[in-house]
Simulated assay, not measured.
Amino acid sequence: MKDLIRDAESLLSASAFSEGVDRRVFLKAAAGGGFAVAALPVVAQTQIQTSTEGLDAADHIVVVNGQDVPVYRAQPKDRTNLPVVLVISEIFGVHEHIKDVVRRFAKAGYLAVAPDLFVRQGDATKAPDTGTLMKTIIAKVPDAQVMTDLDTIVKWTRQRGGNTDKLGITGFCWGGRITWLYAAHNKDVKAGVAWYGRLVGETNPLQPKHPIDIAQNLKVPVLGLYGAKDTGIPLESVERMRTALDAGNSRSRIHVYPNSGHAFHADYRPSFNAADAKDGWAKALDWFSKHGVA
């Protein structure tokens, strides 16, 4: 819990696959139309807005073990056999910025999906403040639950024209940590890009491992993108991760931006660094292309 709260403070300064179940839903309440309530104190003007022109984009429900899991999907119109990218959100859930990232990947030729991985614990978009969000929702999300949800959603993307032989994953902050873990969990992942995800911390029954614990045996190449001025993820932990990856002869790499802090890709927040976000995006697309997700 202490590590989760520290993450929050830095933010502020398949199992059972129901084949054929695909119910389009109108999910405009909170997440669909804007930003998480808890994120509002740090929301600035969104600087990047990606249209749906040329895309097939929609909200869906994927049923996982009897639970309705909302998913936002975007892909180029009238195309199939597309490489698949899982987009894993920050703690604030699948709000408009995350949906925009999904559309950016679709514009680049991907079938991209962003699932609400907090749905069983509560609605992250409606939490009144970050402290409440962390304690009542985020801290209660088991890693095992997340892995199962993602396994099922990967299967679901095949019905939407996705080629899961070309599977990638990317995530931001909370989702960055999940990116490292899912790359270790699912050997079918071809590559991952983890944006400023937590690497070390206390373990508990819901979070039995952190990225540092899987680094030496990680076979899937993951690109880690971090900011040197990130007060929640100190460089010491980033260097520990780099050392552990090198010890395992991993193909994974870490890039640190000296002038950025946490959430430098989040163009709706004051932490946004346009130059580094642009460079990171280019690196992410290049990483996926080089490692079979294109």
Rank of each mutant, 00 (worst) to 15 (best):
T243L: 14
T203G: 03
Y226W: 04
L245K: 08
E202H: 09
G197Y: 07
V222C: 06
V193S: 07
Q207M: 15
A215N: 06
P258E: 06
R198N: 08
N249E: 03
A191R: 05
A191Q: 10
P211G: 04
V222I: 11
A228F: 10
A194T: 11
A191E: 11
R198V: 05
M241R: 02
G248N: 02
G227I: 02
R253K: 14
A228Q: 12
K219H: 09
S252R: 04
G201M: 09
G197N: 01
L235C: 14
L245A: 04
W195V: 10
V256A: 04
G248R: 10
G201F: 06
K219S: 13
S252E: 06
V193Y: 01
P205Q: 10
A194P: 02
K190D: 00
P208R: 08
Y226A: 02
P258L: 03
G192M: 05
G232Y: 12
V200Q: 09
D230N: 12
S237K: 13
G224Y: 06
P208T: 10
L199S: 05
G232E: 02
G201R: 08
N217Q: 15
I214W: 01
T203P: 07
N249I: 03
V220P: 02
A191I: 07
V193C: 06
D188W: 01
P211L: 02
L199F: 03
I254W: 06
S250R: 00
L235G: 14
V220S: 08
L223K: 07
D246V: 08
G224T: 14
V189G: 00
G227N: 09
Y226Q: 10
T243K: 15
H255P: 01
E236H: 12
V238Q: 11
K187Q: 15
E202Y: 08
H255T: 13
D188K: 15
I214P: 08
V222S: 02
I212N: 05
T231C: 13
P258D: 00
S252W: 06
K229D: 10
R240M: 12
D213T: 13
M241T: 03
Y196S: 06
G248P: 13
L218M: 15
G232Q: 06
G227H: 05
R242N: 13
A191V: 04
L223E: 09
P221A: 09
K209V: 15
G227W: 05
G232H: 05
N217P: 00
N204H: 12
G224I: 10
L206P: 07
V220N: 13
A215H: 12
S252P: 06
S237D: 15
D246F: 01
V200P: 00
S250Q: 04
Q216E: 06
Y257D: 07
A228L: 14
D246Y: 04
P234V: 15
V222R: 10
R242Y: 02
I254N: 02
P208H: 06
L199K: 02
V222E: 00
G248W: 04
